[in-house]
Design a protein around this nucleic acid. Structure first.
Lengths: 225, 225
DNA sequence: CTATACTGTTACCTTGTGGTTACCATGCTA
DNA sequence: TAGCATGGTAACCACAAGGTAACAGTATAG
């Protein structure tokens, strides 16, 4: 992941860059508005960046102008950042197209989280779960096994996502019951049927099973061993 | 736009609801975690909401548990909100799946902006959408399939753009109903008719269908596989 | 003002879901 | 060994959800 940091305070910038690097985020750095605009010109409106952190108060002008000028081609999401707690500033930033806002002083871990969220939102970084030949795309709600696309019923999808989230940790029967039938009286057979059906859909023919039962502990999503 | 507010402070809740209503945002309200869970059960994991504002400290438990329990089926984005400025709280919330975080006391206009952002209302509408032989030009409002130009009714155009924005992620029936018939009591048949008509217009003869139904999950714009 | 198209409504059909029952396999315990 | 608990499978079927066509009232355009 590559982001652009526009910030005039050299010390803060250095700290931020160090922290983000440690999180696995690469950072390009511009200390002034002028430098940021140069980069914009070179990179076709920040095309290459997953996100931009923009300090509001820069020595050579207000950062809002950057958003407003370049907004047309802006592909990268912008996180605004300023010392001012003034509400009008915030609203102006959002109005100009910022997607998030953080006030100084901020904690670096929080900044990192927000940057990752921003970058993920736009790149539609679909959360995907893979296990052997099983492939689950959570946002698009697609399940594939090898090159075969699998259609799951609502209940089966719910169960699969629950298992995938916890995998390879087993999920107890009680948890599953509560999760899928939150209110109604639950019959143990419903649970058994659901599991059988999901198993059947996930491994046709003689593909290896991916749902393992641990007696008394529940059910886990892992490769057969 | 419809959101869910989970907040135990009745005064603050009333103020928030008033303000959001004035912004054109409808608000459902839950004062306790228990009530929120009831709503979750009724509405198939908050399917009908565009966003959820969740107060961290509730009388009957910590709101994080709601996220963790129900996360599997969570369609709506969550904005966390709390009096604590404790960094750990923030990070825990983000880790649990929150997409934004705001600390009390907050300014209502800022909350409104963040909610709108979350709900995706500010989605950047791509100029052109393509899928197989289907070609949609949003700004010119033209739809083509191969070399045949297609004319859509207003409703059908609305639906197509909604689907295209989210593609290939499926859009739930609840979302569609709210988007196309925002106020009126909606009849399920209207939805069925609209879908049939759009399908019919988009694929005459024996062109492959581009609108896939995922049982219980909604409808998605993707190539038939 | 007339013709056309849009949209809400009804009726009917198809499909798949999911609760249910019945039966079998395994492993533990008395 | 019988008895029981846990877990797996298959088949049945009521019923809800989805799909289609036809009709009518109303809006819209020419």
């Amino acid at each position: 992941m590559l982001i652009l940091l526009v910030e005039d305070d050299a010390v803060l910038a250095a700290q931020t860059i160090d922290f983000l690097n440690a999180e696995g985020i690469e950072v390009d750095y511009a200390a002034t508005l002028g430098r940021a605009k140069e980069i914009a010109a070179q990179t076709a409106s920040f095309d290459k960046y997953d996100a931009i952190i923009l300090d509001m108060s820069l020595p050579d002008g207000n950062a809002l102008s950057l958003l407003q000028q370049s907004l047309a081609g802006f592909d990268a999401p912008v996180l605004f950042c300023t010392a001012a707690t003034d509400l009008d500033d915030k609203l102006a930033a959002f109005a100009a197209g910022a997607l998030d806002y953080i006030t100084k002083p901020f904690a670096l871990p929080e900044l990192a989280v927000r940057v990752k969220l921003l970058a993920g939102k736009v790149s539609k970084c679909n959360q995907v779960f893979e296990l052997g030949s099983l492939h689950v795309d959570f946002s698009a709600k697609i399940v594939r096994r090898g090159n075969r696309t699998i259609v799951l019923s609502p209940q089966q999808w719910q169960l699969l996502t629950l298992l995938a989230e916890q995998a390879p940790t087993p999920v107890s029967k009680a948890q599953i019951l509560r999760h899928i039938w939150p209110d109604s009286e639950v019959n143990n057979n419903m649970y058994k049927s659901l599991l059988t059906r999901l198993r059947h859909n996930l491994s046709r023919d003689n593909e290896p099973s991916v749902i393992q039962t641990l007696k008394g502990q529940g059910v886990a999503l892992r490769e057969s061993s």
